[in-house]
Design a binder for these strands. Structure first.
Lengths: 355, 355
DNA sequence: CTGTTAGCGCATTCAC
DNA sequence: GTGAATGCGCTAACAG
């Protein structure tokens, strides 16, 4: 049997309450007493039973997720994952709420952050927009002692506690590397479809992509970036025009969320245009395109992992516990037709302890 | 506040004990009473607090992991992950033990399985070897009511409760697909290095690989499979000879654990031989080879995920709970130089619930 | 068949 | 400063 607070109390010759004070380093313990208790803790190799502790606390942690609204499938997937996590969340004494705000709207995001602060949540996770209002709001959250994590798109200089998402520069490099290898000696320029260069993650992906492409043995022209605002119509138009204008186009890298328009344009062009296409995020559209051969590879960040990581990090911060960085790193997944997981399907489900 | 057993008891007009009996469907409850309780449970939308339940049970689950011994880096990594999980295991009231047996030795494995049965463990996870003794031993475990999962390599007809590992046919297909695309029009045959065709996973990978290669637009010769018994020396010799004998060799698929020998041979051959090389499992060697450009892609199954999944499944079976299949699916990861995670690094850490 | 009682390991009043 | 008592949500004897 592993040691409990009782064992410590006995061994140190004090009461439970005192042991508890030392464990949670609360005031009201003499130095000598504290030392005795700490000695006992060390000798017995005590580790707190988190489950029991939480049970006793019966504290509940309301966490707020703020996501961009609209039909961006990845974001909707993230939202689904939050709700899914919500089902199991009571087990972990967390209470998840999701609010959506207009995409790319710094002011709206800031407003929601303030709203969450108002509601005295125990933590906030948000997809950051690069705007001064957001920086200020995050600052207010921090002043209020509310842990804040950025999700998917970071805002490093905001003082957020943690960023949960992939290394987007590496993601771009990976895309460039795969594109280069898949194309081989085949000639022709490559097009890049982005949402908006005003979002960090898109900019970083582009940066990595360009670096990897230029490091390839075969040098290749990269056409000016097409900004589709992650809008299906707009993206469709841009890609369709590009396909028409550039007959020898060899490949397309879609680094944003404009995949519905992209796929539509590709389908319209037909199989005659044998392009190498790489996109981001596994969604219904990209999955179908991958299976249908319209897209060659999809880079993905697992929304489920991200949500659960956000919850863990937020709870850890709320409890003043350390975050195991290695454990919270979100991997960049590569999918091709052959390793695509069959269903939407969830993933690990640590709750208390974890996969 | 979410409903508790007390609420159910009150609502159904019965005592806690009766509620508990219904919840854990134990005998000794009249049909009518049971119905009343179940009604209350449904109306209240009750969900059991697993943490509290485990606390009350204070039952401990000794789980046995049986792994092949030797210097197979992947297996040693698996072992590390079990030990790592062991640290957090007390939290989950599981007690992990690892024993190693000679690789490919069915009799030894069977003996250890019997040993675990003897020790009355609550569950067994083992890397299956395809031998009649093993089948029989698994049968005895099942008769003893001990849950059994196969790890990494399956034995579907054994009656094991669950298989935890990747779809190896899909893995082979993925390798073939990548190999085909990376090589493009480039001529030359491809070699395959396996451990032994007597192991299921190796056989399945080969099958998938051949299928994918033959589906490629460019048809390409596949040399007879080299069986290196996952032994560094032997593998080195086979690959070195192959490199010498086949001057126009275009690629190598290493589907087993003979990567140390493979890499050594590749290094010896020098950069002059510009081959496309695809291997399995991220280990120190394959990681270095990937970074050094000797290997182009590495397919991986996350040992940490597998171990945690095994623990979850075994515990669920031990408690007679259902297993959420989708959640326990192990993904096949693709790594190239650009998306290789920086460090060994763990992963999710569900304990109770999950990443 | 059903109810009472006593913990599991910990946190938290409220006295001393 | 320190200790005793109570309860979190659930399970498990042991009585009826």
């Amino acid at each position: 049997m592993r040691p409990t607070v009782h064992d410590i109390a006995e061994r140190a010759g004090v009461s439970l309450a005192t042991v508890d004070r030392v464990l949670n380093d609360r005031p009201g313990v003499r130095g000598v007493t504290r030392a005795k208790v700490e000695g006992a803790i060390a000798e017995l190799g005590y580790v707190r039973d988190v489950a029991a502790a939480n049970l006793a606390k019966s504290r509940v942690y309301p966490l707020a997720f703020i996501l961009p609204e609209g039909d961006n499938p990845f974001m909707r997937g993230l939202e689904d994952e939050v709700r899914r996590a919500g089902v199991h969340s009571m087990v972990e004494r967390t209470q998840l709420s999701v609010v959506t705000v207009p995409a790319f709207d710094g002011r709206a995001l800031a407003r929601e952050i303030d709203g969450a602060i108002e509601r005295a949540v125990a933590g906030i996770a948000a997809v950051a927009v690069d705007a001064p209002e957001v920086l200020a709001a995050i600052g207010r959250a921090r002043e209020a002692g509310i842990p804040f994590v950025t999700l998917v798109s970071d805002l490093a200089n905001s003082g957020r506690d943690h960023f949960i998402g992939v290394d987007n520069i590496a993601a771009g490099r990976t895309a460039g590397s795969l594109m280069g290898r898949f194309l081989g000696e085949r000639p022709g320029p490559v097009a890049v479809l982005a949402g908006s260069m005003r979002v960090r993650d898109h900019g970083e992906r582009l940066e990595g992509f360009l670096a990897a492409m230029s490091a390839m043995p075969v040098s290749r022209a990269i056409l000016p970036v097409l900004e589709g605002q992650d809008d299906p119509e707009l993206s469709f138009g841009l890609i369709a025009k590009c396909l028409a204008d550039v007959p020898d186009l060899a490949g397309i890298y879609s680094l944003g969320a404009g995949n519905r328009g992209l796929v539509k344009a590709l389908a319209a062009a037909g199989a005659a245009r044998n392009l190498c296409v790489i996109a981001h995020e596994v969604t219904d559209e990209t999955r179908a395109a991958l299976e249908g051969g319209l897209v060659d590879a999809v880079l993905n960040q697992d929304a489920g992992h991200e949500v659960r990581s956000a919850i863990r990090v937020l709870r850890a911060k709320a409890d003043g516990l350390p975050v195991i960085a290695a454990q919270e790193r979100i991997r960049l997944e590569i999918f091709i037709k052959d390793n695509l997981p069959s269903e939407p399907g969830a993933d690990d489900t640590p709750g208390a302890a974890g996969n």
